[in-house]
Amino acid sequence: MKNPLAKFDKAFEHKTRLHIMSVLMVNEHYEFNALKELLQVTDGNLATQIKALEKEEYIEIIKGYTGKKPNTKYKATKLGKAAFNKHLQALENIINMQK
């Protein structure tokens, strides 16, 4: 039998990365501070995980301004969405196999 773990995406091994991706799947884009509040993580942790996802080209950055303040938003890329769906499918398969 094929090893179902083979489909697991290493990029989503870290919980925060998985969570960031979940949020970006259902929202067109999300701001840094809003993500921080929702996920209850520190600035440093969030920035690191975002950078990792960005390196995989799973998310992209939209720089903008609200008034004069710079604000940074994140958006899931097509590649990222496909990878996330595959990862979810793999999770489901494993859980179903145990039943």
Partner: peptide, 16 residues
């Protein structure tokens, strides 16, 4: 893994 799935579902719901 089950916790992962439920946290994903929860975040999708809460985030918007």
């Amino acid at each position: 893994m089950q916790q992962d799935l439920s946290s994903i579902r929860n975040l999708m719901e809460r985030s918007n």
